[in-house]
């Protein structure tokens, strides 16, 4: 259950070596881009919705079909986008991040053996 293998010094050297490896640099770039992009999209989209609800209530009150109005359609949009973002994140992480993370982990295990 404790992970450190070998003395702390080799471990630190291993981490510093991995930090400049191609696999890790690529993993970090992709992960950071993904996090920043998705975070901006869903927070921005939700903020846009609540700002419109607060400051343009008349727009949200417009009826579209029966008693369903623009505001309720925005809510439906939020819910669908949450499901879509989740599905996208799972796919992206599996295809583009997991293989790189695995390479980094292998490298780490090899150098620490």
């Amino acid at each position: 259950m404790t992970t450190p293998v070998g003395p702390q010094k080799t471990r630190t050297t291993t981490y510093l070596t991995i930090q400049s490896s191609d696999a890790f640099i690529q993993l970090r770039r992709r992960a950071r881009r993904l996090i920043a992009a998705l975070f901006t999209v869903f927070v921005g989209w939700f903020l846009a919705t609540i700002l419109l609800a607060g400051w343009a209530p008349d727009l949200f009150a417009l009826e579209v079909a029966g008693n369903v109005n623009v505001g309720l359609l925005f809510v439906v949009g939020q819910i669908l986008s949450t499901l879509l973002i989740t599905a996208f994140y799972l796919r992206y992480a599996r295809r583009w991040l997991d293989p790189l993370a695995e390479r980094v982990r292998d490298e780490f295990e090899r150098s620490n053996r």
């Binding site: 992970t3 993993l27 970090r28 980094v104 982990r105 295990e109």
Partner: peptide
């Protein structure tokens, strides 16, 4: 910076994470 290297690599890849 060395400790940050560990943090960065562990957080993104799980290398050295508790199993």
């Amino acid at each position: 910076d060395a400790a940050y290297a560990e943090m960065e690599i562990r957080s993104l890849s799980g290398a050295g994470a508790d199993k």
